[in-house]
Amino acid sequence: MSHAASPAISRAGLLAARVADRRRHHRVAIALLGRYMLADRREYPCQTVDISPGGVRLVCAVPGEIGERVVIYLEHLGRLEGTISRILPDGFAVALSATPHKREKIASQLTWLANRASLGLPEDRRHERVVPRQSAVTLRLDDGSEVPARLIDVSLSGAALACDLPLPVDSPLLIGRTACRVVRQFKGGLAVEFRLPLSPDRFDENLVL
């Protein structure tokens, strides 16, 4: 008798665990910019629709396949890994793989982001943008030439540089070892977007690109 009942008990227990997991991982509707890498190492830009420590929904152009491993880099949160769980009309959903400690860090950061948005607080510039101690850099262009420049400030997703050479928008280049592209020109300089957002773990005035 007990053997016959055990599968039903197991299924009921599994369902209860999933419901508890969904409740524990409260989703936050917030738009964070980032990039993702599919299993074949192709990379594309994305934006979050909502996110919890257990999963994230992305708006993106290339959806991948259900069950495919994906690596995501998001502003404020850094590197996340998981498996595509659902394909959506404008993107896909990912079940995140993370240690309990990593999930706690994600939950804390999401709480901060949600509170900042609900209270209408300004961006925290200490976390959003830094002025590196080592500001002199060399830009390596696609044709192999090098151009001296100076970092004005850096965010997780890009940088502003003082540079005498006006580079066309969308020009690919390297700042040190960091791949990026020109997204805007201004008088005496330019703004670039990093190919992959920087990790928050190394984001301070001692940052070297």
Rank of each mutant, 00 (worst) to 15 (best):
G55S: 09
S52G: 07
R42V: 07
Y44S: 09
L58I: 06
G64P: 01
C46K: 02
R35D: 07
G34P: 03
G64N: 02
V62E: 13
Y44R: 02
T48C: 05
P45S: 12
S52K: 04
C46F: 02
A39F: 09
C60F: 02
G55I: 06
P63Q: 10
A61E: 10
L38F: 05
R41T: 15
Q47A: 14
A61S: 10
P63F: 06
R35V: 12
R57V: 13
P53H: 06
G64W: 00
Y36G: 02
M37E: 11
A39S: 13
G54D: 05
A39G: 15
V59M: 09
M37R: 12
D40N: 11
Q47R: 12
Q47D: 11
S52I: 09
V56M: 10
A39W: 06
V62Y: 07
T48D: 03
T48V: 07
I51F: 03
C46W: 01
R41M: 10
V62G: 00
V62F: 11
L58F: 06
Y36M: 00
S52H: 02
V62H: 06
R42H: 13
A31M: 11
R57K: 14
G54L: 03
I51L: 14
A61N: 15
L38K: 00
T48S: 15
V56Y: 02
E43G: 10
Y36N: 04
P63L: 06
S52V: 08
V49P: 03
V56C: 09
D40I: 03
Y36D: 01
M37T: 15
Y36V: 01
G54E: 08
E43D: 05
L33K: 15
L33V: 14
Y36E: 00
P53Q: 07
I51R: 01
M37S: 11
Q47W: 01
R35Y: 07
G55C: 10
A61K: 09
Y44N: 05
S52C: 12
D40P: 04
I51V: 13
L32P: 04
P53W: 01
M37A: 11
Y44T: 00
P45D: 15
L58W: 02
Y44W: 09
A39R: 07
G64Y: 05
G54V: 01
R57T: 12
L33I: 09
M37I: 12
T48Y: 06
Y44I: 01
C60N: 11
I51N: 00
V59G: 06
V49W: 04
L38C: 05
A61P: 02
G64M: 00
R42S: 14
C60I: 08
L58E: 00
R57S: 15
R35A: 15
V56D: 03
G64Q: 01
Y36T: 00
P63H: 10
A61D: 14
V59E: 12
P63K: 10
V56F: 11
M37F: 07
R42T: 13
V49H: 15
S52R: 04
